[in-house]
């Protein structure tokens, strides 16, 4: 049997809200080490990779590897039936054709149970190579969300340039052009408010704002986001999930014709 109880159930709610517009169906790979998911968007331009380690659950039981194919829109609808402070348990019986979601109020006086039919998903898995990135930018996730939203009024692409001075986002379109430049923070009250650029070499790449906007829906998961860039490789956008794992998005660059 597979059973994973997540005391901070709202993490799962935020996760599914973050990916449900990008990915329709996904296979949750359940292993003794934890829960993972890898899926491409329907256009095969971006990739979502989720990891939730077993030690983030309490308790976590996985006797054998299981693949749970789940429609994320259905899952999102069901998760809306839980409260933010609910404890959420995911359970799957061996050889069963459904996943069971249990929502438990903090005082355990309310228990709801939903049985979700599993779906067969033909999911191509990709090997993600280890990459030494040219530039790694860390910034508040709310700032990332704001910049992506602001750039979208100008066009459908954004050029992100990293240098030793900081990071510059620029877009141009029919109505005009604009940019936002973030300097590396010198002194901040909280590390979560800082902008840092770890630079091996200056790099400038262009990406579709539509996807960055979808990625930024993960901002409620983590106060900070990390953007990793290298010339001619996909951008990595990473949100850490408390102390238990991460939600990563990879986006193929746009190439100047």
């Amino acid at each position: 049997m597979f059973e994973a109880r997540l005391p901070q159930g709202q993490i799962l709610k935020k996760l599914i809200e973050a990916v449900r517009e990008l990915v329709t169906d996904a296979n949750f790979e359940c292993k003794p080490s934890g829960l993972s998911l890898q899926a491409m968007d329907s256009s095969h331009v971006s990739l979502v990779s989720l990891l939730m380690r077993a030690d983030g659950f309490d308790p976590y039981q996985c006797d054998r590897n299981r693949t749970l194919g789940i429609n994320l829109r259905t899952l999102a609808s069901v998760l809306k039936c839980s409260s933010n402070d609910d404890i959420i348990t995911i359970r799957a019986e061996d050889d069963g054709d459904s996943a069971i979601l249990i929502f438990e109020s903090p005082s355990s006086d309310r228990l709801s149970e939903f049985d979700l039919k599993l779906v067969d998903i033909d999911n191509e898995q990709l090997v993600i190579p280890d990459t030494q990135y040219d530039a790694v930018v860390r910034m508040p996730s709310a700032e990332f969300q704001r910049i992506v939203r602001d750039m979208q009024i100008l066009g459908d692409s954004v050029t992100i340039a990293c240098s030793k001075d900081g990071v510059k986002f620029s877009a141009n379109g029919e109505i005009g052009s604009g940019s936002v430049r973030l300097k590396q923070s010198s002194a901040v009250d909280s590390e979560d408010d800082a902008v840092t650029v770890d630079l091996q070499q200056a790099v400038s790449l262009t990406f579709a704002l539509r996807y960055l906007s979808l990625f930024s829906k993960a901002a409620p998961l983590s106060p900070t986001v990390t953007l990793s860039f290298s010339k001619d490789v996909p951008l990595l956008v990473e949100f850490r999930i408390a102390d238990m794992g991460h939600l990563r998005f990879y986006l193929a660059p746009k190439i100047d014709e």
């Binding site: 898995q125 996909p234 746009k254």
Partner: peptide, 14 residues
């Protein structure tokens, strides 16, 4: 104008 690359061009299927 820009050409959108696909992710499979960068990550090899298993």
């Amino acid at each position: 104008s820009y050409l959108q690359e696909g992710i499979v061009q960068y990550f090899v299927p298993i």
